[in-house]
Design a protein around this nucleic acid. Structure first.
Lengths: 139, 139
DNA sequence: TGATTTGTAACTAAAATGATTACATTTGAT
DNA sequence: ATCAAATGTAATCATTTTAGTTACAAATCA
């Protein structure tokens, strides 16, 4: 099903930034550890910055900095920053309005989506970036 | 992000089958209400059948039949039948093994995935096809 | 002034996804 | 037996999504 690695990339990047602490980390260095292109990283950093999770700086010794303690940063926040949209897709073509199911399934699926999304976010909210660092240390 | 409408299609189809009760429903009729091609529906029906949720029959007056009471059929079962895979994608290219984060991030993300998936399934398990029918009736 | 880095646009390549066509197979009715 | 209706299934197409890439202007600091 849906396969975007944006959230995975974002968690990876945030973990590196957390380890660097006060040292700016350039998109090139981040791209190296993630093994992708710096522009892909920069696009991600912009969204993390818009969400208030990091700051970025231009010029020599520029790069990205974590704005908050890892203990106070949940995976839900990272997820919301980079992964909009919802878990399932909706009907690409409008279903038949003559059929009682087709007529109302849209609204019903919307509610199911909401519940599923909230359940996902509740779970992600239980995990912090500090938890990720802890597990990384354990290998 | 990920956008497959297979789960939405499946819930739609199952709701129609539930309303039809003992009458077989052909892939063409289902395709009409979903507004897609019969083959798309047939491929879906095969997976629902493999999961034991419906039976299909060939020949004239053939089609699909619900195998279980809607009250005893959770959305989780429908989801598992048609939507394998996981919520987020993983690194498309192996991250740098020199970086402590790159080295272990795979395992860590796997655990996060597991937790997220389980949370999603727990929520879907709380909803039955009968609940969907009830909401459809309310409009 | 020059080196370094972000921000951003434009484009490419690959993968995923639904839609479509075609046809063999099964089944039931006449 | 034959015919019509339906599934099962392979092959292909078109669209969309996604990551990756190139290029360059803008900012920043030494």
């Amino acid at each position: 099903e849906m396969q975007s690695c944006r959230f995975t990339f974002a968690v990876h990047v945030m973990a590196v930034l957390a380890l660097e602490k006060a040292d700016c980390c350039s998109s090139s260095r981040l791209a190296q550890t993630v093994n992708t292109n710096p522009v892909v990283i920069r696009r991600l950093l912009i969204e993390l910055q818009d969400a208030g999770l990091i700051s970025t700086f231009r010029g020599p010794h520029g790069g990205a900095l974590l704005k908050r303690k890892p203990e106070k940063l949940t995976l839900r926040e990272i997820h919301r920053a980079v992964d909009h949209g919802s878990i399932f897709g909706t009907h690409p073509n409008e279903p038949s309005q003559e059929c009682p199911v087709g007529k109302s399934i849209g609204k019903v699926m919307e509610r199911i989506q909401d519940r599923a999304n909230r359940a996902l976010e509740r779970e992600l909210e239980k995990m912090t970036l500090a938890d990720v660092l802890r597990e990384l240390r354990r290998g």
